[in-house]
């Protein structure tokens, strides 16, 4: 966990909210929820040490490894 990255991302998120707030106020509820959910996911991800954290890439590698091995053996 790196606090520097986390605080940087928090500052960026704050700037985005301040910058978009005037426009987002006029949009319907669904748009607002999507906007904030994306920001919350981004904020939550910044808590981790991403390069060494297993994620979607690891999942895809587990799924497609047999195909890759098959290709190598051809």
């Amino acid at each position: 966990m790196k606090w520097g990255i986390f605080f940087c991302v928090m500052v960026i998120i704050g700037t985005i909210i301040l910058y978009e707030w005037k426009k987002i106020k006029t949009y319907p509820k669904r748009d607002k929820i999507t906007f904030f959910i994306l920001l919350i996911i981004a904020g939550a991800l910044s808590l981790f040490d991403l390069p060494n954290l297993p994620g979607p890439v690891t999942l895809l590698e587990t799924i497609f490894r047999p195909f890759g091995n098959f290709m190598e053996s051809l």
Partner: peptide
């Protein structure tokens, strides 16, 4: 998601894309 406009989600998506470009790729 049947949103009215895609423009408000561009900046939040940007943070996610930057994070995705590092995730599990040391």
């Amino acid at each position: 998601l049947n949103l009215t406009d895609y423009k408000p989600i561009v900046w939040p998506l940007g943070i996610l894309i930057v994070q995705l470009s590092f995730w599990s790729l040391p």
